[in-house]
Design a protein around this nucleic acid. Structure first.
Length: 213
DNA sequence: CTCCCGATAT
DNA sequence: ATATCAGGAG
């Protein structure tokens, strides 16, 4: 039975994940910070495949804050409906577009603090945009990062806030953003929520959950 | 804590 | 049938 990984073991575990997923990166398709912001808002409780399918069509016509700020809300709801939670998401995309135009001179803010001033943007979405678009070191704890990091034993926390802090202490700052993408890739391809592929897992030697199964 | 929520995998 | 999917607000 393994316990919580030490800083050193965590580092070696990330090395293995990096070899396993050399192309780990943001999988939400986007051509600008604003497009990534919209895609990330849409990604709540929805697969990235579905989000990409919706945004590919939508961004052909609408891809700037000006396009969404005054859009008819029913029209926007129709565009994003397939992503689920569509009334909240449409309202937040429109409202955030207005705040960007009125408070941030039409440009997506670059700090986590400012990003969180946008309606519908919490810590996780702010971390994704800041780290992916603006090079701010951050570990966005989404459902995959939470499940994988706690299941393996990188950390042992019962909510996303504590998990983010614990991961920041466990991982060197210059690996934060990469680690975030590695956890997501591993969570999607191997360490899935239901019936994880433990026998084929490249980091089972590090994993306390594997010892239990 | 509950609510928002359609689409897919199991 | 139901768990899950790159969460956030009230």
């Amino acid at each position: 039975m393994k316990g919580i990984l030490s800083h050193d073991e965590a580092d070696k575990c990330l090395d293995v994940l990096e070899e396993t997923y050399p192309d780990a990166k943001c999988e939400l398709e986007h051509k600008s910070p604003f497009e990534l912001l919209v895609a990330t808002i849409l990604s709540a409780q929805c697969t990235d495949v579905r989000v990409n399918k919706v945004t590919e069509e939508m961004f052909k016509k609408y891809n700037k804050p000006e396009d969404f700020a005054n859009m008819d809300i029913k029209t926007l709801e129709g565009l994003v409906k397939e992503c689920g939670l569509y009334r909240n998401k449409a309202k937040n995309i429109k409202a955030s577009s207005n705040v960007i135009l009125e408070e941030f001179n039409g440009k997506v803010p670059e700090t986590i603090k400012d990003l969180m001033k946008l309606p519908g943007v919490g810590k996780k979405t702010a971390n994704v945009v800041a780290s992916t678009c603006f090079g701010v070191p951050a570990i966005a704890v989404d459902t995959h990062v939470f499940r994988v990091s706690n299941r393996i034993g990188f950390v042992s926390e019962n909510n996303v806030e504590k998990t983010e802090k614990a991961l920041e202490n466990k991982i060197d700052r210059d690996r934060w953003t990469k680690a975030h993408h590695l956890f997501i890739f591993h969570g999607r391809r191997c360490c899935t929520a239901r019936s994880p592929k433990c026998q084929a897992c490249p980091i089972k030697d590090f994993c306390r959950y594997y010892e239990e199964t």
